[in-house]
Computed example of a mutant assay.
Amino acid sequence: MCLGIPGEVIEIVGGQPDLALVEVSGVRRAVNIALLEDDGIAPGDWILIHVGFALSKIDEEEARAAMEFLEGLGQAYEDEITALRDSGDD
């Protein structure tokens, strides 16, 4: 199962305006934000992420509700976080 997960933008990667450092459940990864160019993404914003791409900008309340739902899925959510954490390993 593939999930869209909410993450908080920590910073826009210098010299690469299509990338943002995003935190999801304590895991930080670079995420492609090019699809949201018109939304004016900035640190502190919340975005919905799927396979390394930001799909939409969401508010903090929506992000919190989505996280509660995802955490309720149990193993599927844990698998997604593990995949996110492992994606930084080369």
Rank of each mutant, 00 (worst) to 15 (best):
S87G: 08
R85H: 06
V27T: 12
A66N: 08
F69L: 12
I41R: 00
Y77W: 15
P6V: 12
L84E: 06
V27E: 07
E37A: 15
Y77S: 03
E8P: 05
L55E: 15
G52R: 12
Q16Y: 08
E11Q: 10
M1P: 07
G7Q: 00
L35E: 12
G15W: 07
D39M: 14
E78A: 09
D90G: 09
E68Y: 05
D86T: 04
V24D: 00
V24Q: 00
D18G: 09
L84V: 03
A20V: 02
D18R: 15
C2L: 09
L19V: 02
G4W: 08
I10Q: 09
E78P: 02
V22Y: 00
L21M: 08
A63F: 09
E8N: 08
D18K: 13
E11R: 09
L36R: 13
V24H: 00
L70K: 07
G40M: 08
G4R: 13
I41T: 04
D86H: 10
L19Y: 07
A42G: 03
L55S: 10
G88E: 02
G15L: 02
E68C: 03
L3D: 05
G14C: 05
L35S: 12
E60S: 13
D86P: 01
G26T: 03
I58C: 02
G40P: 02
A76L: 13
D39Y: 09
E61R: 13
V51Y: 14
D45K: 01
D89F: 10
D90H: 11
E80K: 14
I81K: 04
G40C: 05
C2A: 10
D39E: 15
V27G: 06
G40Y: 07
E11W: 00
A42K: 14
E68S: 04
G72P: 06
F69C: 06
D59G: 05
G4C: 14
G88I: 02
D45T: 08
R28I: 00
D86E: 15
F53C: 11
G7A: 05
E37P: 01
G4V: 10
M67Y: 04
R28G: 05
G4D: 14
G88S: 06
E68N: 08
E71Y: 04
I81N: 04
